[in-house]
Design a protein around this nucleic acid. Structure first.
Lengths: 165, 165
DNA sequence: CGTGAAACATTAGCGGC
DNA sequence: GCCGCTAATGTTTCACG
């Protein structure tokens, strides 16, 4: 995971792989006018250095019945409440983050600047499921003071590819 | 792209592929206790039906120098202004969406419920780049009335894997 | 960086449950 | 219908020039 130099050829490899992660090494080598072995060596180097975090299949949420995407802003209690043992060292933030990891419908969670503390991206089947999630999980959590939700009406652009060129 | 039945075996294949999109068919077949050919037939079916939208490599933004992630709420002008030809039929929304497609730093854009119209996810190197983007692109756009930004302080959870099990 | 050969993976055809 | 075998073809990978 050391610091790593990335040249123009590496960037072209990355650009290709973030569009199609299943291309064969041969195919990639052809596109960048290199023979397969140095191309593979570069790819392995990028994988081992962690520049390439991994390869995944992207699924269609709607075809799997996950029709509702919500962004939920969450505000947490900041002072230790009675339920927090003063010597345990677990803050409200710690408790909340641990809970988030266990909720499968939360596909992303960021700590944010601004008047809310966290931004959650929540992917569920329908409003009934979402409503249950908010009431039984989120609002039920002792650290959560307030939530504000916006729903995605339409996705115009959505890419996992970073602007690297 | 027809409607498609997805059984428990398909779901297990999808769960595996959304964690690691480069596993060989053989490897997947082994994990689900199936021989390679029916496994491959299922994968192809899922690809052709669009349930699997594609395969990508995920990159590490920080290792590529993209250290700043912002969520930008955007509000648009709703009435046609003088610059919009009444017969061209292009609305402010149309113009804005077209512009978004051309901005590489915008990695996602949703139309949203609530008092703002769009939510943009913007990935850039640093605050200087972000500032330029907002002033020279976003606020410069004739359809944009107002923007409100929050920055990601820390990412606790971020997965492309959908909760399908 | 490129070549080539061994190991491995993919995929179509066919028979069986 | 869906599974599993086999065999031909194509791909990855690594030692070596």
């Amino acid at each position: 995971m050391a610091k790593i130099e990335i040249d123009a050829i590496d960037r072209r490899i990355l650009a290709i792989l973030q569009e199609n992660g299943r291309l064969s090494n041969q195919e990639i080598a052809e596109r960048i006018n290199l023979s397969p072995s140095p191309c593979l060596r570069r790819i392995r180097r990028l994988e081992e250095s962690g520049v390439i975090r991994g390869y995944v299949a992207l699924l269609d949420a709607q075809k799997l019945g996950l029709d509702l995407l919500a962004y939920v802003n969450v505000r947490l209690e900041k002072r230790s409440g009675p339920a927090l043992s003063p010597r345990g060292g677990a803050t409200h933030a710690d408790l909340f983050r641990a809970a988030v990891q266990t909720w499968p419908e939360v596909v992303a969670c960021h700590a944010m600047t601004g008047d809310m503390d966290y931004l959650l991206r929540v992917q569920v089947e329908d409003m009934a499921h979402f409503s249950r999630f908010v009431q039984e999980q989120l609002l039920h959590h002792p650290s959560v003071i307030d939530v504000k939700t916006s729903f995605s009406l339409e996705r115009f652009k959505e890419t996992t590819a970073l602007p690297i060129l």
